[in-house]
Design a binder for these strands. Structure first.
Lengths: 219, 219
DNA sequence: ACGTGTGAACCGATTCACAGCA
DNA sequence: TGCTGTGAATCGGTTCACACGT
């Protein structure tokens, strides 16, 4: 049934790397560099040239053999692939310390993203304006998100509220969530969730800090 | 030469997951649950029971066959593996908006981590106390880090300074860095670097937001 | 009887190596 | 000639399925 060809599955990681290439291409562009080889563009990325070429090959041939890649052209192609050519509005839920920091974070602009709506259920925060965005009541969240047809959200509420809020976002039409709560969200599969979990990242760094005994197993 | 046995390589991801298990175990402990099966502990984690057991198996047998795992005992074992049993002091470099947010972030405590030193090269910030930590001059960084024998750092400086600062941290004895700058750090291999790159994470989420044409390649 | 612990099978992603084209 | 584009080989991690211990 409909098994087209399983071969064209694109590694999730390949997409992640496209973002990195895009960032680097913009830097190169600012330095007035016009043409790069896969060797040059990956020099400072700890990614192999072959990996770079393979990643691009999932989407088409973008280079000139014997020459390299046109910086401007490739920039455009990758933006088209990622879908970041036009500005995309996001919603933020949770305007605590983390949420406020996200409102002030300029890095999203790099991928043409901006926070257009912000919500909090704490009445004392509602009405305040942080970095140009007015905090609104969570009660109005579903309505406003639907109204503005927003499909991506940043979830920065306390862990105990995350699952419930995630559900509400899903029902409001949100299709992609960057989740900052240290909880695994259980949501309908059409909603894409990426977790940002600094604490656990640190946890695993601590492991690597230890000089391990040569250790085969535990004894 | 010296090929002991390549089989005991522990997947990097397995370590990451240990942090998740640990968090969940603490939750279970608070709910007074004493014994769990691999099935139960992974129920809300989107990790399979087999994966859980495999991950633990790299370090030893910690469960009772036919029964399950003792919550308290396993908690202790994982903390021992990760090396988070005792409080570990970290340094923060860069006390801008992001750095300030990190100083106020309580999540690190979960893994027994705390920020003990904070630095910034902006004279107007030096001397200020944020969340109980005094910002000090980057000029004193190497000396203070060495003095207090700190080995882990959070790097939250602007992108153009990241590489240089990373080097300085390495020379000061830092062996693990959580890097928030959108740059790939080139450091001696004994320094472990983990990148936290929200912007690029969002970039790849945007891709998944798009309803793709059935598309086999590009044309 | 039941759930762990684990070698073996499987699967997906990375790397290799070279054919293809400018 | 030089660097891209890509099947084929390889590698590493996940899943399976069952033997083992309690």
């Amino acid at each position: 049934m409909g098994r087209k060809k399983n071969t064209d599955a694109i590694p999730h990681e390949a997409i992640r790397r496209l973002s990195l290439y895009l960032r680097d291409l913009k830097r190169l562009s600012q330095e007035k560099i016009r043409i790069v080889s896969s060797e040059e563009i990956t020099r400072f990325l700890s990614i192999s040239p072959a990996q770079f070429r393979k990643d691009l090959s999932y989407f088409g041939p973008f280079g000139k053999r014997g020459v390299g890649y046109d910086v401007e052209k490739l920039t455009g192609e990758i933006e088209k692939i990622l879908g970041t050519e036009k500005l995309l509005a996001m919603a933020l839920v949770g305007a605590g310390k983390l949420g406020a920091a996200l409102l002030g974070y300029a890095g999203f602009l790099e991928f043409n993203l901006k926070i257009a709506l912000a919500f909090d259920n704490d009445a004392s925060k509602v009405g305040r304006v942080i970095h140009g965005v007015r905090i609104q009541s969570t009660g109005d969240m579903a309505r406003l998100i639907r109204q503005r047809k927003i499909r991506m959200a940043l979830l920065a509420v306390p862990a105990p509220n995350a699952q419930k809020t995630g559900h509400e976002l899903a029902r409001s039409g949100i299709r992609a969530i960057l989740n900052f709560a240290p909880v695994n969200l259980n949501l309908p599969q059409e909603v894409h969730v990426t977790n940002v979990d600094m604490a656990s990242e640190m946890g695993s760094l601590v492991y690597r800090l230890h000089p391990r005994p040569v250790s085969s197993k535990k004894r």
